[in-house]
Amino acid sequence: MAVLVNQLSKKYAEQQAVDGISFKVEKGEILGFLGPNGAGKSTTMKMLTCFIPPSRGSATICGYDIVRDPLEVKRKIGYLPENNPLYYDMYVREFLEFSLLMHHPNTKSKSGAQIKSIIDQVGLNDEQNKKIGQLSRGYKQRVGLAQALLHDPEVLILDEPTSGLDPNQLADIRHLIKELGKEKTILFSTHIMQEVQAVCDRVIIINKGRIVADDKPEQLQSRLSNKVAVEIEFEQTINLEEIQNIQHVLSAEKLSSKEFIVQGEDSIALRKALFAYASKKNNALLTIKQTSKSLEDIFQQLTNTTVS
């Protein structure tokens, strides 16, 4: 087991940032860590990389405990922190040499070849003699990735590796992550759904510090899409509670005072029940439209707990 997380929690002064999450990542798996901003993704990653200790719970990386063996854990991981902090006054090559020496102080002879191969891999060839501060955002991101990959770590922890990239760069970086995932265990966070669909073997959705879903992307989709969602519009105002009480309705979400999205298991029974209800109440049903659930909707449904 590459990563094993058990009841990990982090409480800041006022706020429970991460609340008892547990999961495993197999060797060679790409795990997408998904959640809205402030869900606790970064905090979890900071704990796994030994930057901050957990308040409760434990985790191991390649068998090493994050609290007891931080140095061993840090040797096993490559980490790209949130917002990709870098030393802007350093040259690309100089910075990569520094990063490598921090991991392997005694491998000066080999370092040249190793750095060159990473520079090729992430596509920094033309930029390697520039100062990091002069690079565009996409290239800075590549430097951050190069820094995480350089020492050939077993586990890669990438905190929003694709944020702020243009579509071409996005595709490049995703492709790179996918390539890397053939050999390495990767845990990466994002709030972009397509990324998860494109790259991940498995996805964990986290919200308010808790895991709300943990599954393969396709299964997550099919698990929730055997429910049907129907968008409806009534002529007159109607309460959410009333809709929820209609037969076959499993859940309902209010869009406006007259418009709702309702979910049920049986599409036909659900729509029939809605019609029956409308005619009984003499409240005409103006729209009824079946909507398909994308992973995006699932994400919203799982993380949006403040339905008004």
């Binding site: 840090k74 949130e82 902090p85 921090m102």
Partner: peptide, 10 residues
């Protein structure tokens, strides 16, 4: 934020 980069090196 580079302190995070530095602190997560071994």
């Amino acid at each position: 934020g580079t302190i995070e980069l530095l602190s997560t090196k071994p």
